[in-house]
Design a protein around this nucleic acid. Structure first.
Ligand code: SF4
Ligand code: SF4
Lengths: 134, 134
DNA sequence: CCATATACGACTGAACAGGTCCTATTTTGG
DNA sequence: CCAAAATAGGACCTGTTCAGTCGTATATGG
C-alpha cells in the first residue's frame, strides 16, 4: 500500500479551509470539524501539530482558534505533510530509517531506481502550494 | 506513511534477478531467496502472483522454476506492482475504493490536486521498465 | 467566575504487514 | 516406480500502525 494517512488528508483540508478565509481571520477546530464532518478530536490534534511547526498560530480561550501565519502561496504542501507526519513521505524504509534498517540493503538492486521515483514525488509535493489546493 | 510493501520490493528484486539471466533460463525461488537473504516463502508467494499475472512462467517439479515471458525492456514496473498488489498504488482511498468509501468525499477539497500527484506517480512507474532496475 | 477554546497524552479496537507453517500437486532423474 | 525437488496455495500468528475516543489540564474573553 502507498497511501496518505487520514491525518494528512484532514490536515490538508483543514489548513485549506483556513486559507480560504481573509488573512488573519481566526477559525476554530469545531468549525472545521462541522464543515467537513471530520471527528473533532482528530482535527484538533492535527491543528496542534501544525501550530507547533509554526505554519499556523493558535489563540486559546474564548474566541480562540487558528490562523495562517503567511500567504497560502508561500506554503508548499510538502511542508504541511512534514509538519503532520514528522517526516517526508518516503516509499522505502531505507530512505527514512537508514541502510541498517533493511536486511537486504547491501544486495538490494532496486534502491537507485526507487530513489528516482522518490525524488519525483518530493518534487510534486514541494512545488504544489497551499493556494493551489483550495 | 506512503510506503511500498516488502512484497513489492521483494518482487521487484526477484523479477530483476530473473531478468539478469539469459532469456528463457529457469531460476528457482530458492536461488533468489538465498541470493538476497529473503525468506523463501515470501519470494515463492510473490513469484506465484507474478506467474498468475503472466509476467513469468513457472515450471513445476524437479528442475523447475521461473522464467521471463518477454523482454525486460517491455515490462513496466507498474505492471509488476499491479500483479503483486492486485492494483495500482494509490495515495487516497477514494481513488481505489470509490467515492462512497470516504465519508468526506462530497466536501473534500483536496481530491483534484491529489489526483495530479497520483498521475505523476503512475507515470513514473509506468515509464520505468524492468530493464532499468537491474 | 464560567463558558469556550486549545493542549496533550493515554487508551482502544480494527486492520494490516511481515513472516511462518503445513499440506497438496507436479515432474524429473535414477 | 519411487523419491526428491520444486511450485501452488491456504491457514495462521504476531507485532505494529491507524483511526478514533476519552479524560484532563490550561488559557482567556466577557
Ligand atoms: S534497501 Fe532495497 S529493499 Fe530495503 S528498503 Fe531500501 S529499497 Fe527497499
Ligand atoms: S475524498 Fe478526499 S479525503 Fe476522502 S479519500 Fe479522497 S482525497 Fe482523501
Amino acid at each position: 500500500m502507498v497511501r496518505l494517512s487520514k491525518k494528512v488528508e484532514y490536515g490538508l483540508i483543514a489548513i485549506g479551509h483556513i486559507a480560504t478565509k481573509p488573512t488573519g481571520e481566526i477559525v476554530t477546530a469545531k468549525e472545521i470539524a462541522d464543515a467537513y464532518k471530520i471527528p473533532y478530536e482528530l482535527v484538533a490534534k492535527v491543528l496542534q501539530k501544525l501550530t507547533k511547526s509554526g505554519l499556523i498560530v493558535s489563540h486559546q480561550g474564548v474566541r480562540g482558534g487558528y490562523a495562517l501565519t503567511r500567504n497560502p502561496g508561500d506554503i508548499p504542501v510538502s511542508m504541511i505533510i512534514n509538519a503532520i507526519e514528522g517526516m517526508q513521505p518516503v516509499i522505502a524504509q531505507c530512505m527514512s530509517d537508514g541502510p541498517e534498517s533493511c536486511t537486504v540493503f547491501t544486495v538490494c538492486t532496486i534502491k537507485s531506481p526507487l530513489i528516482k521515483v522518490q525524488a519525483n514525488i518530493e518534487r510534486a509535493f514541494s512545488t504544489m502550494m497551499l493556494s493551489e489546493i483550495v
